[in-house]
């Protein structure tokens, strides 16, 4: 084995392109996951079984089937009926949708952790349902779920190379195409290390956050 720094130099510009795309997918995917997950979680507490059951079934199905296959589904099947989207857009939607079913669980636990007395006090004051959610329940629930949400961003980071399989050239996709062209191994290695180098400090940050929240609450 001989590590060739020239290969590394050649790969670097494409590596940075890939990093940019990875971050883009991660940020937008997280935004979808955070907001859609909240929608799921609130719908799961609906008074109407006709809302609860379909949402429960959909989220359960999405969470328990592979992201890769869901990406294929979005990429190959959806354009048959609907609009064709770019690989990157499809990938972002896929990541966001998949992880929204996890964040929904996080929100659900957070909402369940708000004491019943808070709901009762809101009832006793006749606060409307929307106000109860917006001013009383969610502010308390979201605070305690922030670290858990952060954990899923890291999990999403590690799943983000999957969007390369449908053609969105993020870090890993760049490494794969570069390596295929040059028959070299350095790019894979660099990208593999890059994932660890991003994920580790991020998880330290979240643990710090967890500890801070545990103290203040």
């Amino acid at each position: 084995m001989t590590w060739d720094w020239n290969v590394v130099d050649d790969f670097m510009p494409r590596f940075w392109d890939g990093v940019l795309l990875t971050l883009q997918a991660l940020v937008l995917g997280s935004l979808i996951a955070f907001s859609l997950g909240l929608v799921w979680a609130i719908a799961q507490r609906s008074r109407f079984a006709a809302v609860r059951w379909p949402v429960n079934i959909i989220t359960e199905f999405i969470r328990n089937t592979p992201l890769l296959v869901q990406l294929f589904f979005l990429y190959y099947v959806v354009p048959e009926w609907g609009p064709s989207l770019t690989s990157l857009t499809t990938g972002i939607i896929g990541l966001g949708l998949h992880y929204s079913t996890y964040t929904a669980e996080v929100y659900r636990a957070g909402i369940g952790g708000v004491p019943t007395g808070q709901w009762e006090a809101a009832t006793a004051l006749s606060l409307p349902r929307s106000r109860t959610w917006a001013a009383v329940i969610l502010p308390q629930a979201i605070r305690r779920v922030v670290p858990a949400l952060g954990n899923y961003v890291i999990a999403m980071l590690k799943d983000s190379p999957l969007i390369a399989i449908i053609g969105a050239l993020e870090m890993f996709g760049e490494a794969e195409s570069f390596s295929n062209e040059t028959f070299t191994f350095e790019a894979y290695t660099i990208v593999g290390i890059a994932f660890i180098l991003i994920a580790y400090p991020a998880s330290l940050l979240i643990r710090l956050l967890e500890r801070r929240l545990a103290i203040t609450s």
């Binding site: 009762e120 006090a121 009832t123 006793a124 004051l125 606060l127 106000r131 001013a135 009383v136």
Partner: peptide, 30 residues
């Protein structure tokens, strides 16, 4: 129900609101 008010054993104040807002929240929004 608006004719009824209740004070609970465990207070059930909203921990995310300061004292003043705990008291004004419902009059303003209800």
């Amino acid at each position: 129900r608006k004719k009824i008010g209740m004070v609970f054993q465990q207070f059930n104040l909203f921990p995310n609101m300061k004292v003043l807002r705990n008291v004004t929240e419902a009059p303003v929004h209800v």
